[in-house]
């Protein structure tokens, strides 16, 4: 018997991916942020959820986020292959065939939305379906390669999870989850533009019109400061709603002061200074932006914990 023409001993043929490759298609790091913000939205809602329903709903939201990630990787495989940061993703690296990624994305999207409909309620399932559509079609297919406003508008996709979590618990929406949506929505541009400042070469090579490539790094730095200034009052506002309190107010004041100061430092630098120290300040601001978001949501969770323990101030002012 002769050996086959293709060398099965050298590497895995296409379509022979391992489970970890399929898992990587789901963008687990993005998924963790989605799960965290959705879980906080659910836990701080005024209505309790049975732990089993909460767990099942979180799994559905995670699967929905994974579906968005797989569809994004399917569509963007050509530009992912051109960028150092994304070239090792399963599709451009040849470990997962494109149609497998598409199948996984569509399948997970259908299963996650239908399951959330059955486990929780139609509103939560509807927002999850819209979120997947928004990320996969409006952001990935339509906006990402078209306009430098791609992540400004596309940022809404990442802002929906707290709304879904709140809807799972209450079956409705109110001003509090809308404020959480607004925080993530306004946070997304400075977060990604900080990344785009030091990953500019990658984005230019792939032809993705990120703000630094289109408007220039100097203008992007000013925009980051502008967004940080607008974000600050929005992020402080939940302190004066039913989900806030003095602990959240203190955390939000400190975090937003640091965020605005970080953006101010960024805005005062020029490209020469940034290249001289290997974009140290930009990378530090990017890291700070992640801590910023997690800390706000953790503070809200702590407020909910104090409320459950009966330690919430009765006469704390509520403006909304």
């Amino acid at each position: 018997m002769t050996e086959p023409a293709w060398d099965i001993y050298a590497e895995a043929p296409r379509g022979e991916a391992q489970m970890r490759d399929y898992f990587a298609l789901l963008k687990p790091r993005v998924m963790s942020l989605v799960v965290f913000t959705a879980a906080v939205g659910m836990l701080i809602a005024p209505v309790g959820v049975h732990p089993v329903i909460a767990f099942a709903s979180i799994l559905c939201i995670a699967a929905g986020a994974g579906a968005s990630g797989a569809l994004n990787m399917w569509w963007d495989a050509d530009i992912d292959a051109l960028m150092r940061r994304t070239a090792s993703r399963p599709v451009p690296a040849g470990r997962v065939a494109p149609d497998e990624a598409l199948g996984l994305g569509v399948g997970l999207a259908l299963i996650s939305v239908m399951s959330l409909f059955l486990f929780a309620n139609p509103l939560a399932a509807g927002i999850l379906a819209f979120t997947i559509f928004y990320y996969a079609v409006i952001y990935t297919v339509w906006l990402k390669r078209l306009t430098p406003q791609n992540i400004v508008i596309g940022g809404a996709a990442g802002a929906f999870p707290p709304l879904i979590g709140w809807a799972v618990a209450t079956g409705g929406l109110s001003i509090e989850p809308v404020l959480l949506f607004a925080i993530i929505f306004m946070w997304t541009p400075p977060h990604f533009w900080a990344l785009a400042l030091f990953a500019d070469t990658d984005y230019r090579r792939a032809g993705v019109p990120m703000m630094p490539a289109v408007a220039g790094a100097a203008r992007t730095r000013v925009l980051i400061l502008g967004y940080a200034l607008v974000l600050a009052p929005i992020a402080i506002l939940p302190a004066f709603t039913a989900i806030g309190g003095p602990l959240y107010l203190a955390a939000a004041l400190v975090l937003n002061l640091r965020f605005v100061l970080g953006a101010w430092r960024l805005a005062r630098r020029d490209e020469a200074a940034a290249r001289a120290d290997g974009f140290a300040v930009e990378k530090s601001f990017f890291g700070l932006s992640i801590v910023y978001l997690f800390a706000h949501f953790l503070a809200l969770l702590a407020e909910a914990g104090l409320g459950a323990a009966g330690l919430r101030l009765a006469d704390w002012p509520q403006l909304l």
């Binding site: 049975h50 089993v52 329903i53 767990f55 099942a56 799994l59 399951s115 059955l118 486990f119």
Partner: peptide, 9 residues
């Protein structure tokens, strides 16, 4: 198992 648990609840 998840569907079973949700059904019971």
């Amino acid at each position: 198992l998840l569907v079973f648990a949700v059904t019971i609840v």
